[in-house]
Simulated assay, not measured.
Amino acid sequence: MYSVKDAYRQIVGDFVHNPATFDKWITLWKLKVPAKWKTFLWRALCDILPTTNNLIIRRVEVDPTCPMCDISHEHVMHTHTTCDYSKIVWNISGLPVTNIVATTFPEWLMGAMINLTEEQLAMMVGVLYHLWNARNDAVWRRALPRPPATWRRAAAAKAAYNEAHCPGGSRTPLLAAPLPQGRPRCFFDGGYRPHSGDATYGIVLVHPDGSFKAETNGKLPGCFY
């Protein structure tokens, strides 16, 4: 009696589960979060997200650097925990995950599941999901949202889920995200046209929380270089 399953097992061998990889599936599936967040987390734990490392393994010609920081090679662990962009989002969230030391994403997640409460764990999954969405924005739209915006999206999505599925519970935010304090930040850039000698500039001023404050642009007079 021939079956595709038997042929597959003859080729790749029997699957052997390694408990040291990740052994908290029951806790994960019982989380009170949207189903798509759980599916995303399952894909991340199985390392089947289309990171640049995984695409290169499948012989896809892509730039291996992370689209968010443009410094390190992109893999699941880097995108969600060690990237400079991700670190800023975690710091804004206030979740106690920045001190977890791990070499793999499953190991990091198990450490977080031990240290966090159920509500904090649900919020953490939301942040992971929206970090991946921010990464996709950087890849497909060439526009990386500001870290406070990514945090606000995750918090708003979790609050909306609680509103719809936990009507009898508290409707207050799970975490009060500390807004960055300090002076407004200024971003600027310039351009130059060699054939005409025109030089231009653009300036954007944002509040400490990343929201828009003011902008201006124009030409620079007397540019001869």
Score class of each variant (00 low, 15 high):
residue 72 S to A: 15
residue 48 I to A: 10
residue 71 I to Q: 00
residue 34 P to C: 04
residue 92 I to S: 03
residue 63 D to E: 13
residue 103 T to I: 12
residue 39 T to R: 13
residue 64 P to W: 01
residue 80 H to A: 06
residue 61 E to L: 15
residue 34 P to W: 08
residue 96 P to R: 11
residue 50 P to F: 05
residue 111 G to T: 12
residue 91 N to S: 15
residue 88 I to A: 07
residue 92 I to D: 03
residue 55 L to N: 02
residue 87 K to N: 05
residue 55 L to T: 05
residue 105 F to K: 00
residue 34 P to H: 09
residue 66 C to T: 13
residue 67 P to F: 00
residue 40 F to T: 02
residue 84 D to V: 15
residue 58 R to M: 09
residue 105 F to C: 00
residue 60 V to H: 00
residue 88 I to D: 02
residue 107 E to K: 10
residue 87 K to A: 07
residue 62 V to W: 11
residue 47 D to K: 07
residue 70 D to V: 15
residue 74 E to K: 02
residue 82 T to R: 07
residue 89 V to A: 10
residue 63 D to C: 10
residue 48 I to W: 06
residue 56 I to C: 11
residue 54 N to I: 05
residue 65 T to F: 10
residue 40 F to A: 00
residue 88 I to F: 01
residue 86 S to D: 06
residue 46 C to P: 00
residue 102 A to I: 01
residue 101 V to H: 06
residue 87 K to M: 09
residue 65 T to V: 13
residue 76 V to Y: 04
residue 41 L to C: 09
residue 86 S to W: 06
residue 111 G to Q: 11
residue 87 K to C: 06
residue 56 I to Y: 09
residue 90 W to C: 03
residue 44 A to F: 07
residue 51 T to K: 01
residue 67 P to I: 00
residue 31 L to I: 05
residue 84 D to G: 13
residue 97 V to Q: 03
residue 85 Y to W: 09
residue 80 H to S: 06
residue 97 V to P: 01
residue 86 S to F: 04
residue 49 L to H: 01
residue 99 N to W: 14
residue 47 D to I: 09
residue 73 H to S: 12
residue 103 T to L: 12
residue 89 V to M: 04
residue 81 T to G: 02
residue 37 W to G: 11
residue 79 T to L: 15
residue 104 T to V: 11
residue 67 P to S: 02
residue 97 V to I: 06
residue 65 T to I: 11
residue 53 N to S: 14
residue 48 I to E: 07
residue 45 L to Q: 03
residue 31 L to P: 01
residue 77 M to T: 03
residue 100 I to S: 03
residue 52 T to V: 01
residue 45 L to K: 05
residue 54 N to S: 04
residue 42 W to R: 10
residue 47 D to Q: 12
residue 48 I to S: 11
residue 103 T to M: 12
residue 95 L to V: 09
residue 97 V to H: 01
residue 84 D to H: 13
residue 64 P to A: 02
residue 102 A to L: 01
residue 79 T to D: 08
residue 31 L to E: 05
residue 103 T to K: 13
residue 37 W to N: 12
residue 108 W to H: 07
